[in-house]
Simulated scan of single mutants.
Amino acid sequence: MTVRELGRLLEEVRPLSETRRARLPAFERRARTIVAGLTVLHTALTVLGAREAVVSEGALREGMMIEELRRHAAYASGLSARQRSALALAERFGANLAHARHVTALSRELFDQLCQAGAELPPQGRGLLKAAATLHEVGQLIAQSGHHKHSAYLIRHGGLRGFTPAEIEVIAQVARYHRRSLPKASHPEYAALSAEDRRLVDQLSAILRVADGLDRSQASGSKVRRLERSGNGWRLEVTAANALDLAGAESKADLWEREFGPLNIAALEVRRVR
């Protein structure tokens, strides 16, 4: 369609009543908005200096889906067999995969920078943390209320492959403590763990809570720039986080403070929430 043809169509449709516009082929469901839509399109093409436009067979929805599928394929191709198993379980239970990927990336970055700064974290904890971050919200399949507990149940009984039963239990409990209550000796499943595994659950849950808080808006925007020691605590510099993400991370830093020391979150760039 040429821009000139588009302009002629606009001039023909503009003076018609909504009832008459609704009788035109393809305009039945757009009788109220077609004049505004044509005006915006014609103006945009004119400003851009275009002479013609090609109508796409797909719309914005299709483009978003294709983009997400490509991003998902690229992400999955770089995973280990164990992480692919965790991702397959997340898909099966209908998790928000974009949020899961982003929280996993934030968790991994926090874990690595903690280790670089001298924190004592077992190497095997990294893989367990990634699995827990991928699966931390699968319990929403059952219910939003108490979904952290449902997540733990689904992880225990979902057929997660590549992990030992003891590792699956740690993953389940890390996911269980990503929100709400902190690990307590009064919780039967937690109390049944060995002292070593309780320590691991405490540390990994502390990291996951902060990572999940940093994507509270589920906009997948916040990035960890630097984590360093500051006095008896830590300074975490983040970029591209919005106000909701910052508030989420600060409110969920309670277990981090208990395990590693106070956490001061510094936003170097704050995005507005739209």
Results as ranks from 00 to 15, higher is better:
M1H: 06
G7H: 03
G7K: 10
G7Q: 09
E11Y: 01
V13Q: 02
R23N: 15
L24Y: 11
P25S: 14
A26W: 12
E28S: 13
R29A: 15
R30Q: 07
A36C: 05
A36L: 12
T39G: 07
L41T: 09
H42C: 10
H42E: 13
T43W: 12
T46K: 15
T46I: 14
G49N: 11
A50F: 13
A50Q: 13
R51Y: 12
E52I: 12
A53F: 15
V54Y: 13
G58E: 15
G58P: 05
L60D: 14
M64Q: 10
R70N: 13
H72L: 14
A74G: 14
A81Y: 01
R82G: 08
A88F: 11
L89P: 02
E91C: 04
G94S: 13
L97N: 07
A98E: 06
V103F: 01
L106N: 01
R108G: 11
L110V: 13
D112T: 14
L114A: 06
G118F: 10
E120R: 07
Q124K: 10
R126V: 06
K130F: 00
A131Q: 01
A132H: 01
A133T: 05
A133F: 07
A133I: 06
T134Q: 06
H136S: 02
V138A: 06
L141P: 01
I142G: 00
A152H: 05
A152W: 04
A152L: 10
R156C: 12
H157K: 09
H157R: 13
G158H: 04
G158E: 02
L160Q: 07
L160H: 07
L160Y: 08
L160C: 13
R161M: 12
T164N: 08
E167T: 03
V174R: 00
V174T: 09
A175Y: 01
H187T: 06
A192G: 11
A192M: 04
A192C: 08
E196I: 05
V201G: 01
S205T: 07
L208H: 02
R209C: 04
R216Y: 11
R216Q: 11
S217K: 03
A219M: 13
G221E: 07
V224W: 01
R226H: 14
R226I: 12
R226Y: 12
E228Y: 09
E228Q: 15
N232R: 14
N232W: 10
G233E: 07
G233H: 08
W234F: 12
T239F: 06
A241K: 02
A243N: 05
A243R: 10
L244I: 07
D245M: 06
K252P: 00
A253P: 00
W256K: 00
L263S: 05
L263I: 09
L263A: 11
E269G: 12
R272G: 09
V273L: 15
